[in-house]
């Protein structure tokens, strides 16, 4: 890996962490289901995925969730963001490799799978399957957030072509 890329990925990690921090400051939305969020930090993972590749996207994402859990989370939030992040990363990487989706489609899948991973972990922890209703709500909000995140990532890719 070139030194320049290492530096740039470090930069993406820190921007991603700041976005996660800003989002943690926003009042949480519990209106219809717990877990509704924008996922702004995912802009950096999607960008890294398209700009560099799977390994770099995973680096940005995993460094961000470990640091944000240490700085402004608790062991519970780490477990849940890790469950969401791992599933969402895996699906985003597969869809990117298929070559059939733009960053917007990839980030929609990523957003929805992030929620899905968290719900699946919650179902396992609580040993209850009655959380399906939450998933229906979260899939809708996850899609909307995914479109937004995907557009932001596309814009970054467009304007940072030369970097």
């Amino acid at each position: 890996m070139k030194t320049k890329n290492i530096a740039f990925i470090g930069l993406l990690c820190s921007v991603s962490l700041i976005l996660a921090y800003i989002e943690a400051l926003l009042p949480p939305i519990y209106a219809a289901a717990p877990g509704i969020k924008l996922g702004l930090a995912n802009i950096m993972s999607v960008f890294a995925l398209y700009k560099y590749g799977a390994k770099e996207a995973a680096t940005v994402c995993l460094i961000r969730i470990s640091l944000s859990a240490l700085l402004f989370g608790n062991p519970w939030s780490l477990a849940y963001s890790a469950a969401g992040a791992v599933l969402s990363l895996a699906v985003m990487i597969l869809l990117k490799l298929s070559g059939k989706f733009s960053p917007v489609g990839v980030s929609i899948a990523g957003g929805v799978c992030h929620n899905l991973g968290q719900i699946l972990l919650a179902m396992m922890v609580l040993k209850t399957i009655g959380l399906g209703l939450y998933m229906a709500v979260l899939a809708i909000t996850g899609t909307i957030a995914g479109v937004l995140v995907g557009f932001c990532a596309s814009l970054m890719l467009k304007y940072l072509k030369k970097v």
Binding site: K100, F101, I108, A136, A139, T143
Partner: peptide, 28 residues
């Protein structure tokens, strides 16, 4: 190529939204 990707994106979003809206509608 790009157009095809955008079409796939839209199909993906519509499928996810339709599935969740149907699930919610059934519940309601």
């Amino acid at each position: 190529m790009e157009k095809k990707k955008i079409r796939n994106d839209i199909i993906l979003a519509v499928c996810v939204l339709a599935a969740s809206l149907i699930a919610l509608a059934v519940f309601l």
